[in-house]
Design a protein around this nucleic acid. Sequence first.
DNA 1: TATTGTTATACTCTATAACTATA
DNA 2: TATAGTTATAGAGTATAACAATA
Lengths: 160, 160
Amino acid sequence: MDHNNLDLKTQPWSDEARVADSLKNSLEGRLGYQLRRASVTMMASLAKRMAHIGVTTTEASILILVADNPTVTQTELARTLGIKRANMVPLVTGLMARKLLAREPADGRSHALHLTAAGAQVVRQAQRQMQDHENHYFGGLSAAESKRLLAMLRAVWDIA
Amino acid sequence: MDHNNLDLKTQPWSDEARVADSLKNSLEGRLGYQLRRASVTMMASLAKRMAHIGVTTTEASILILVADNPTVTQTELARTLGIKRANMVPLVTGLMARKLLAREPADGRSHALHLTAAGAQVVRQAQRQMQDHENHYFGGLSAAESKRLLAMLRAVWDIA
DNA sequence: TATTGTTATACTCTATAACTATA
DNA sequence: TATAGTTATAGAGTATAACAATA
């Protein structure tokens, strides 16, 4: 497993990028640029936390959605998470092989997914890690600010 | 070129993901999740704008940084943009092949990059597109809110 | 006819290792 | 010894097309 060895020391911004760059950078003032940098930073950090649990961030999001929606099909998961049906196959296969996910025939062509006990345990760990992760980056914000930030980010999605 | 055919119709969230998903999704309340979704959305939209100019978002960021820092070397660019030196090679090669970028020996091992007239023109177009892009997504925010959002995003990078 | 799961495949992005030539 | 540019390559992630079984 562990194709997700995200030791932060191997990340570009600690190796090469994070040294004091004396370059002028007019991108720094762009919200889109800062948004992307923040996203990449947080995803790498979250990936490291998830690796400790033994899943990728994508796998964790699948397990959480199955926890939220017992009997969901993998095509429904794909739609919600923005993953192609074809790419769900190895993800679901891998999670079943590790006994985190199981499925039973729903109708003749679709399968109802559900968590195993081990899968439910991973979900609990992932949720806790995600909470800590949010607190790490945004714990300094007031409740009102967090709410406002969430709304601004959600608005981007809605506008698109 | 155009290995960047980002017609939004081919994006997952318009094809498959953006149909009304009736699934419960506890990830929706997470700032990290919304941050990533917003980033992916904006990057896809920006990529489409840049494609009209004939560059990728990465290429545009390179050209902009060269405009900011005439005589910069490609290793310095890589550091600032979080790109590996090895991966800068085809990027710089491609931009030189299209006469947007040129370079001259600085010392015996490094090259000073500079824009061609065509490259400077692309930078002007890219800057204008980026400004429109920001306005599209964040034009509804007050100046104070924009400033606050930028600071919150920059803080994520600083914390990491 | 449309949908679910699947296979096969291709392309982009990103990562490492190792080489060369210079400093 | 360290650095700049380069080559080669491997690994994820993500895209499409097409097929069988079923609705």
